[in-house]
């Protein structure tokens, strides 16, 4: 296996809301071609980390860098940090960018814990909206589109074909023309993933994709996520469902009370005493013992 490249690097980020520290000095990497899972008990700060990466929150301190097409070169990164710019030469500092630029330029797409589809638009329209940028350019910022230029029609057909491909892949081709809000819950989850993928991301961030799914749907989701990874998009996911995490992730980061308590392969995480303690809860003296063991 070739040395895994770092695609996204989170360094020492903290996020404070008034007196509450939701994320405390967190660092981890997501490597290209990996499925990285971010796990932790409720309230551990996972979604806050997601919101910092995707620009919906600005972290109080720390650095988040992303190299959509290359590798993160430490010297270039330091030069970029000093320059005060948002990005240069294919390297982006996400904490400096507004959310839509992170999606557009750094090519990070995301889904939401509480599904955010365009409920009054059809499944197909949801996927077409995600392809806004190429379509907007093809429509000559609406001018060519307004006069019905053939070049725009071809671009729209291509967008439609791409959307159809994704609808077939998630098994929703028959419901393409139904409003997204009328689809069953599991279908909405998959449609949201397909919509994010239509935005052509390099890194796909999924906030609890398996929440509310039954075991069969959950297994289908695993297959879908693996196929997305195999097609070249890296994944970062928050998940509670351990069957999903342990089965598909290549790399797991465990958070508790906003701090990282473990980082490694699923097998390493499974046997980590601090993780077990965080999840199952242990008497206070045992926590102290465990903390001593891991040197916290």
């Amino acid at each position: 296996m070739a040395a895994a490249q770092t695609l996204l690097s989170v360094e020492h980020i903290s996020m404070r809301f008034g007196g509450l520290t939701a994320v405390d000095d967190l660092s981890f990497d997501a490597r290209r071609g990996d499925i990285t899972a971010l796990i932790g008990p409720n309230g551990a700060g996972k979604t806050t980390v997601f919101n910092c990466i995707t620009g919906f929150y600005k972290p109080t301190s720390g650095r988040i860098s992303m190299a959509p097409n290359g590798v993160i070169d430490p010297t270039a990164l330091d030069a970029l940090t000093r320059s005060g710019a948002r990005g240069a030469n294919g390297l982006h500092l996400l904490e400096r960018m507004p959310d839509h630029e992170i999606a557009r330029d750094a090519r990070v797409a995301r889904t939401f814990q509480n599904i955010r589809l365009f409920s009054g638009m059809t499944a197909l329209e949801n996927l077409i909206v995600a392809q806004h940028r190429p379509l907007m350019r093809a429509s000559g910022f609406s001018l060519f589109g307004l006069i019905g230029a053939p070049s725009y029609r071809a671009a729209e057909q291509a967008a439609k074909d791409k959307a159809r491909g994704w609808l077939e892949r998630i098994g929703l081709a028959a419901r393409a023309d139904d409003p997204a809000g009328a689809l069953p819950y599991g279908d909405q989850r998959r449609l949201e993933i397909a919509r994010a993928m239509c935005a052509d991301p390099v890194l796909l961030c999924l906030d609890e994709p398996a929440a509310g799914l039954n075991p069969r749907e959950s297994a289908e989701l695993n297959a879908l996520l693996r196929s997305i990874r195999d097609d070249g998009t890296s994944l970062l996911l928050i998940e509670h469902d351990m069957s999903v995490v342990m089965e598909i992730s290549d790399h797991v980061v465990v958070l508790d009370y906003g701090r990282k308590i473990a980082d490694g392969t699923p097998a390493e995480i499974r046997n980590d005493p601090s993780v077990i303690a965080a999840y199952l809860g242990v008497p206070d003296e045992e926590v102290a013992n465990v903390e001593q063991e891991i040197g916290a």
Partner: peptide, 13 residues
């Protein structure tokens, strides 16, 4: 329909 979802897809609202 949803402004936040728009931004997450790279649309400049």
């Amino acid at each position: 329909e949803d402004e936040i979802a728009c931004r997450s897809l790279g649309l400049d609202t």
